[in-house]
Simulated scan of single mutants.
Amino acid sequence: MTLSDPRPLLAGASAGGYAVGAFNVIQIEHAEAIVAGAERAGLPVVLQVSENTAAFHRGLAGIGAASLAIAAQATVPVVVHLDHAESEDLIDQAVALGFTSVMFDGAKLPYEQNQVRTAAVVARCHSAGVAVEAELGEVGGKDGAHAPGVRTDPTEAAAFVAATGVDSLAVAVGTSHAMADRSAQVDLELVRWLHQSVPVPLVLHGSSGVDDPGLVAAVKVGMAKVNIATRLNQVMTAVVRQVLHADPKVTDPRKYLGPGRDAVAAEVAMLLRLLHG
């Protein structure tokens, strides 16, 4: 199956009251596990490579090409997406590699600057047939997402989408990145208001900090794409620890990364079914 454009997938989710799961690739085993989980569930999925992951791999080319190759062989629709890119040069690299979606993260910029730079990215990417996600409000660290003034204003969000032409919008509604527990409370009334006000699909970042009932509730009131990273890392790391503890003499990475990969695939399949309803 060829790589998929996220726009029809997210439009269908937004209209249908379900969400597409988006999971972060840290290493090749993540990409393999995510696609295996999606195939097990029989549902579309988004493979996300973040700017931080590209830096970890000393460039986007290797991990990006691997993700694209794994996606191209999948039996379900797979989007390959550049996540949280503040560098426009990295966005251009992703487009050249064949990514079908990118996120320009200008959330830390003043509103006007975020709008101008996002519009420029959209113009370039749309000319290449690539979808663009942006962020308004700030889904930062655990403290930042709950601080006054960082949550997304629906009226401002609608104006931002109209001015930039973005295809989807990440919004700040009470979640935080890299949470190790599931104590975040999504502001469901704000999500409902945003869904009514903003004419493009909404994206929930920091979803690892939300428990399963909270994810279901957020999707029901309007979230169309749900990003999950830390939760999968916790699953993989727990299994790796178990294997190494059971046999301290293990040195072959395949002996512990393989079980970790299998555990992530099972978690992805479960989460995709949960989000689809």
Score class of each variant (00 low, 15 high):
residue 253 P to R: 08
residue 230 T to L: 05
residue 215 L to I: 01
residue 220 K to S: 11
residue 212 D to V: 05
residue 222 G to M: 03
residue 183 S to H: 12
residue 222 G to Y: 03
residue 183 S to T: 14
residue 226 V to E: 08
residue 234 Q to C: 02
residue 240 V to N: 09
residue 246 A to N: 15
residue 253 P to G: 08
residue 180 A to Y: 11
residue 243 V to E: 14
residue 200 V to K: 07
residue 193 W to P: 00
residue 217 A to L: 00
residue 195 H to D: 12
residue 184 A to C: 13
residue 223 M to N: 05
residue 243 V to Q: 15
residue 182 R to S: 15
residue 200 V to A: 10
residue 215 L to H: 08
residue 184 A to S: 14
residue 181 D to N: 12
residue 251 T to S: 15
residue 238 A to W: 02
residue 241 R to V: 07
residue 252 D to V: 01
residue 223 M to A: 06
residue 226 V to Y: 04
residue 192 R to T: 06
residue 236 M to C: 09
residue 224 A to H: 08
residue 244 L to V: 04
residue 182 R to W: 00
residue 201 P to Q: 11
residue 221 V to T: 03
residue 198 V to I: 09
residue 220 K to Y: 02
residue 222 G to Q: 07
residue 208 S to L: 01
residue 184 A to I: 04
residue 239 V to S: 11
residue 210 V to D: 07
residue 183 S to D: 12
residue 201 P to M: 10
residue 188 L to N: 11
residue 240 V to H: 09
residue 228 I to M: 11
residue 249 K to R: 14
residue 225 K to W: 03
residue 245 H to M: 08
residue 250 V to R: 13
residue 217 A to D: 11
residue 185 Q to H: 12
residue 219 V to A: 08
residue 233 N to A: 07
residue 241 R to M: 07
residue 188 L to S: 11
residue 252 D to A: 14
residue 209 G to T: 05
residue 234 Q to I: 09
residue 207 S to L: 02
residue 240 V to E: 15
residue 206 G to R: 01
residue 204 L to A: 06
residue 244 L to D: 03
residue 241 R to E: 13
residue 253 P to S: 10
residue 241 R to S: 11
residue 198 V to R: 11
residue 233 N to P: 02
residue 251 T to N: 13
residue 251 T to P: 14
residue 204 L to P: 13
residue 234 Q to A: 13
residue 233 N to D: 09
residue 250 V to E: 09
residue 219 V to H: 10
residue 206 G to W: 01
residue 234 Q to S: 07
residue 195 H to S: 14
residue 253 P to A: 09
residue 185 Q to A: 10
residue 219 V to K: 09
residue 190 L to R: 15
residue 251 T to W: 04
residue 207 S to I: 01
residue 197 S to M: 05
residue 244 L to M: 13
residue 181 D to G: 02
residue 221 V to N: 08
residue 180 A to R: 09
residue 208 S to A: 05
residue 189 E to D: 15
residue 238 A to E: 12
residue 231 R to C: 04
residue 236 M to F: 10
residue 182 R to I: 02
residue 238 A to D: 13
residue 190 L to W: 05
residue 215 L to Q: 06
residue 204 L to Y: 03
